[in-house]
Amino acid sequence: MQKSSRLAIYALMELAANPDRQISASEIGEKYRVSSHHLAKVFISLGRAGLVQSIRGVGGGYSFTGNAKRLTLLDIISLFEDTSSACKLNDPSKATDEEWVMFDISKEINDMALATYGSITIATLLKQVDRRGRIRAAKSDGSPALT
C-alpha cells in the first residue's frame, strides 16, 4: 500500500470518528507524524471523491462526508493507486511459461489482498480501534479484558 493511501485511511478514520468536529490537516499530521503538506495533497483527492469537505478560516478544517459503513479500504486505495498493477505481464503474447507461473502467483496474492481491502469498511476499522483501546486499557489497569 502506498503512503498516500495509508494517510488517506488514517485521515478518514480520524474524521469519521469525530463527526461533530472540523479537523485540520496539521492536527492529523501531528498525530500520525507526517507532513501536513503531504496530507493536504491527499485531502485534495479525497475532496474530489466527495469523501471530505473543507471549511476555511478560524476553527475550520475537514469533515467526513462519506458513509463509514459503506466505504471500504479498497475504495480509498483505488483513489491513489492502480490496484491491478501488482500482477501485470509486460507483453502477454510474448510471455514465457516461467513468467506466466510467476504471474499466477502474483495474481493469487493480489486477489487475496483486494478481497481483504474490499471487505473492511471505515466503520469496521473504527470498531477494531475501539476494541483494541478497551483491551489495552483493561490490561493497564488489571481489570478483565473486555469482549
Binding site: 471500504t72 473492511i120 469498511t121 470498531k127 477494531q128
Partner: peptide, 8 residues
C-alpha cells in the same frame, strides 16, 4: 466478508 469482518 464485510459482515464477518465487522463482527471482529
Amino acid at each position: 466478508m464485510s459482515f464477518f469482518r465487522s463482527e471482529g
